[in-house]
Each structure stands twice: as structure tokens, then as C-alpha cells.
């Protein structure tokens, strides 16, 4: 546990040194959200209908955009190689990196999402479901995204490739996340959706680290 915390501390510290990495996903999130009223229509009733899906898609894309960086700098300066040969638990190390990514992407996005929801006229009942579903759903996105990042970290043209690998796997999270907001905004219970999101999170916490470690080993040795 203390190893996990130490690794987490190191990664967070490194991230805070580069403030842009925290601000960029948030700015991207808001900009994507703003494109919809401009591209579709500023009409309140229409936007209110679209809002759950739009906010979720924007959050998903913002999380995807920053996932490429999870292992990038450690790979470039060679420290990833050292981590792979060290006797410490790789699974914990990977979990620490994913947690860092979630804290700077998903967690912050969930906190900012009410602003975007407000601009898109999401009904008041939808705000709490939105924040909770994002808090439960985005860690899964980070875990799945990290698999894609680990697979492509050794390649020069990682960017668009990650999206191809990862986006199809994001679909279940998007479906249940956006549906929970939709259900919540018309006053239906959302516990079921949140339970499903939590189940997917548990499943990916258990399985994804193994895939990430296997992928990192492949990428570093190539």
C-alpha cells in the first residue's frame, strides 16, 4: 500500500509540475460541449434532450485525449524500463499511474461537468446523476484507455491509433453513463445504472492491470 501511495505521489507531483496537462482536458471538454449548440441549435428544449449524451461524449473524448500521456514521458526517459525490471509490484505501479490519470481527467471533469450541463439546459434533477455517473464511469475509461496507451507507447504514431483501439471498448460505459443521466433528469431511479457502472469498474480494476502490464512488457521490449 505504501508503495502504491509513493508511486501515486511521484506521478501526481510530476503532473502538477506541468499544469497544462491538467487544464487542457478540461478546456477541451468545455469546447467540445460548446460545439453542439453552435452546430445543432441553441434551442433550450432540444439541447436539454441532447445534454446527457453530449456531456458524456465530451467527457469521454477529453479522457481519451489525455490517456496517451500516461506512460509516454516515463517511456521516453527510460524510467519505464527500470520499473519493469524492478522487483516491486507492477500491478500497483500501473494502478497508481491510472489513478493519477483519473484524478487529473475524470475526477476534474466530473467536478466541472455541471457548468457544461448548465449551458446545455440539463434539467436540475439531472445534475447529481451526471456527477455521480461520471465519478463512477470515468475510472473505467482511464483503465481501458491505459491498455490502449500501453499497447501504443512504443510507437511513434500513437495518437489516432489509441482512439481506434479504445473507443469501441468505451461504448458500454457511455451507454450506461448517459442513460443514467437521462433517467435521472426525468425523475427515474438511477441506482441500477450506477450499480452497473460500478460493476464495470470493479471488473476493469481486476482485469485491466494485467492487460496493461502485459502490453507494457511488449511495448518496452520491441
Amino acid at each position: 500500500m505504501s508503495f502504491f501511495l509513493a508511486a501515486l505521489r511521484r506521478d501526481l507531483l510530476l503532473t502538477f509540475r506541468r499544469r497544462n496537462d491538467i487544464i487542457n482536458p478540461l478546456a477541451f471538454f468545455l469546447m467540445v460541449g460548446v460545439l453542439f449548440p453552435l452546430g445543432v441549435s441553441p434551442e433550450a428544449s432540444l439541447l436539454a434532450q441532447l445534454a446527457p449524451g453530449v456531456v458524456w461524449v465530451a467527457a469521454l473524448l477529453a479522457s481519451l485525449l489525455s490517456v496517451d500521456g500516461i506512460f509516454r514521458s516515463d517511456f521516453d526517459d527510460g524510467s519505464l524500463e527500470h520499473m519493469l525490471v524492478s522487483p516491486r509490484s507492477l500491478l500497483l505501479l500501473v494502478l497508481a499511474k491510472v489513478t493519477t490519470h483519473w484524478l487529473i481527467s475524470g475526477f476534474c471533469l466530473a467536478l466541472v461537468s455541471p457548468v457544461l450541463a448548465l449551458m446545455l439546459f440539463l434539467p436540475n434533477e439531472g445534475f447529481a446523476p451526471l456527477v455521480f455517473s461520471l465519478l463512477l464511469g470515468t475510472p473505467t475509461l482511464s483503465l481501458i484507455g491505459a491498455i490502449g496507451a500501453a499497447l501504443t507507447v512504443g510507437l511513434r504514431k500513437g495518437g489516432i491509433l489509441i482512439s481506434l483501439l479504445v473507443l469501441p471498448l468505451y461504448i458500454p460505459v457511455l451507454i450506461f453513463g448517459a442513460s443514467s443521466v437521462q433517467a435521472g433528469s426525468i425523475g427515474l431511479p438511477i441506482q441500477g445504472y450506477l450499480a452497473l457502472l460500478a460493476a464495470m469498474l470493479v471488473l476493469s480494476i481486476v482485469l485491466a492491470p494485467f492487460a496493461i502490464v502485459a502490453a507494457l512488457k511488449i511495448s518496452v521490449r520491441s
Binding site: 499497447l151 458500454p172 482485469l207 511488449i218
Partner: peptide, 17 residues
């Protein structure tokens, strides 16, 4: 690795869709 990750996800994707 990717195909194996996909195979775990396919039933979830099917069910959710």
C-alpha cells in the same frame, strides 16, 4: 492482448447495446 481484451468486452458490449 488487444483481441483478448476485446473478447472480454464483447459480451458486455452486446448486452449494453
Amino acid at each position: 492482448v488487444l483481441a483478448l481484451v476485446g473478447i472480454v468486452n464483447i459480451p458486455i458490449i452486446k448486452y449494453s447495446v
